[in-house]
């Protein structure tokens, strides 16, 4: 590959770096001022959970505290309530069998759609014909009411973005008090995947006259199935 911009870019790189280096030559990086950090008051698990749930709710997410064995039944009920007849899911997920049996036992016809396609080749169908999805999540953050998704080949990143309704399973046992402690304690820097997503509600915008509207581009609804919260 040889384009004009490669030369251009190399030359610009050298010019920019030379200018910058000339300015900070001899800087002593050992003597930088100490950076303060704010010590937040320690909160109990109950307080953290309460904060997590109330922030998500105030950001228009629906939070359903459930037991693990209820996943299938709750999802079926929520889909029926919304008159949705199919759900995109990860067939290798831990909860996949539970979903399958609840779907099988459903009074209305419900279809589970495995994510077994390549998005590139199915974009139109993906954007137009898939009404809902369900994904797992890796951690949760109390301070901001945030759910952390760590997409995998089984649960691709757009699964939480393209379908208009997104069910996400969050586990209260993975709740961290804030983003800083999560990044540090779980040593993110050593294991960054292709993509990490922090999600704190359904897609929204206030771009027209500061009036909040939901479902700007991504999901109109975020339904959080919260495990181990009781």
């Amino acid at each position: 590959m040889s384009y004009k911009f490669e030369e251009q870019s190399k030359s610009a790189r050298n010019a920019i770096l030379a200018k910058l280096k000339a300015q900070v030559a001899g800087a002593d990086y050992e003597k930088l001022p100490e950076e303060p950090t704010f010590e937040y008051a320690k909160q109990s698990r109950e307080q953290l959970l309460e904060n997590f749930v109330s922030l998500l709710k105030s950001n228009h997410a629906e939070v359903l505290p459930i037991k693990e064995e209820e996943i299938g039944a709750v999802v079926v009920k929520q889909l029926q309530k919304r008159k949705i007849d199919s759900l995109l899911y990860n067939p290798n997920a831990q909860y996949a069998n539970a979903l399958a049996s609840s779907f099988g036992a459903s009074s209305t016809e419900l279809t589970l759609l495995p994510f077994d396609f390549n998005v590139n080749e199915n974009k139109l169908n993906y954007f137009n014909d898939i009404p809902a999805s369900i994904t797992s999540s890796r951690w949760a953050i109390a301070e901001t009411g945030t759910i952390v998704l760590w997409p995998t080949p089984d649960e691709p990143r757009t699964m939480s973005l393209v379908p208009p309704v997104h069910f996400v399973i969050a586990d209260a046992d993975t709740l961290h008090s804030n983003f800083a402690s999560l990044v540090e304690q779980q040593n993110w820097k050593a294991q960054m995947p292709t993509n990490v997503l922090l999600i704190s509600g359904p897609s929204k915008t206030a771009d027209i006259q500061q009036t909040l509207a939901f479902g700007a581009h991504g999901p109109k609804e975020l339904i959080v199935l919260l495990l181990n919260s009781q």
Partner: peptide, 13 residues
């Protein structure tokens, strides 16, 4: 407190 999405991209597909 945080935006709806915070997206961290480290690699191509």
């Amino acid at each position: 407190a945080i935006t709806t999405y915070f997206n961290m991209i480290t690699k191509p597909r």
